[in-house]
């Protein structure tokens, strides 16, 4: 039996997290098909066809799917699912939204945010904000799974030559209408795709102080993140939040500035390769996970960091 992967994309580009989902699918065994549901998303379908190891790409190109709203998207996926042993999507805010709807319509218990695959029916997933790892076995005929991209290497974006088929839209359930989006604009890399992230917490005191972090980010080509406290206080928009209930990231380098290291924050970043903490409180729990800790006032240390990075010869 084959596996269906639902592509993450923005109608123009296939997002790299989809490549992690393809790797997860390959660990389940069987052919891998990708569904691209979008509007004006032909280029995404072509990109998906080039992904190594993919057998077939289904493209449902219709205004109904332009924003991947859950109700119509679930109605598209549900009739396809019985052809597959498993349906996989990335555990981002799109996947988290529509996949449980698919699972319930199929009468299946979803397995959320898996970080590893033991066998075709057995999966590892974090619980309690990542403070425990559960190994669960599913007895459902179709597995409905969301994956944590940080748990799976990316499949190669090149080398495949899958057939592309177009798929007719399913009906509009008439429950939901897209009104609009307010997307944070940034020249910087996306948090979940960045190699380096620098995040600010409550210690930043105000959104007006974030430029010192941004200046370091510019030196490192880094994305900027934040703790919940910084988001709740309005320093930065909600999509900056890293943690149990925000984004889960695992960059090469994560720099936590003025962040205490609450378990809910650690849940989102403790799989980073190298962690740096800058905090004036030497007792702050963030130092227990940091590879390199600097006990200092951030308002002094962060501008200094920018200066030192400027002086650094190219690697």
């Amino acid at each position: 039996m084959s596996v269906l992967v639902i592509a993450e994309h923005d109608n123009a580009e296939l997002k790299p997290a989809t490549l992690s989902a393809v790797t997860a699918a390959s660990q389940l065994g069987g052919d891998i098909d990708i569904l691209v549901a979008g509007s004006g998303c032909g280029a995404v379908g072509e990109a998906a066809a080039k992904v190594a190891g993919v057998a077939k790409v289904l493209v449902a190109d219709d205004a109904l799917y332009a924003n991947m709203v859950a109700e119509p998207l679930a109605d598209l996926v549900v009739p396809l699912a019985p052809n597959y042993a498993a349906v996989l999507a990335v555990a981002n805010t799109v996947g988290k939204n529509f996949m449980p709807r698919v699972a319930a319509l199929l009468d299946v218990s979803q397995i959320s945010e898996i970080s590893a695959i033991e066998s075709a029916d057995t999966f590892v997933r974090p619980i309690y904000a990542g403070n425990a790892m559960a190994t669960v076995q599913s007895s459902d005929a179709i597995k409905v799974i969301t994956i944590r991209p940080t748990g799976f290497e990316k499949a190669s974006a090149e080398g495949g030559s899958a057939a592309v088929e177009s798929l007719a839209a399913a009906g509009d359930p008439g429950l939901s209408t897209f009104v609009g989006e307010e997307l944070s604009k940034s020249e910087r890399p996306e948090l979940t795709a960045a190699k380096v992230i620098i995040s600010g917490g409550r210690g930043m005191q105000s959104g007006d102080n974030f430029p010192i972090i941004e200046a370091v980010a510019d030196q490192l080509g880094a994305a900027v993140g934040a703790s919940r406290a910084a988001v709740d206080a309005g320093f930065v928009p909600n999509d900056y939040q890293v943690g149990q209930t925000g984004k889960v990231v695992a960059p090469e380098l994560y720099i936590a500035v003025g962040i205490s290291g609450a378990i809910q924050h650690l849940a989102g970043m403790k799989d980073s390769k190298v962690i740096v903490a800058i905090n004036k409180d030497e007792e702050a729990p963030i130092f227990q996970v940091a590879d390199f800790g600097l006990v200092a006032d951030l308002f002094k240390a962060v501008p200094e960091l920018e200066e030192e990075l400027k002086k650094l010869p190219p690697a």
Binding site: A132, S138, S139, F287, Q288, A290
Partner: peptide
């Protein structure tokens, strides 16, 4: 039940690193 929990384990632990003197 549709799912059975086979085991629950501690996550991989990170070892605390070093405290550096200064930014340099």
């Amino acid at each position: 039940p549709r799912l059975s929990t086979l085991k629950v384990q501690d996550p991989p632990q990170r070892e605390a690193g070093v405290i550096v003197e200064d930014v340099a």
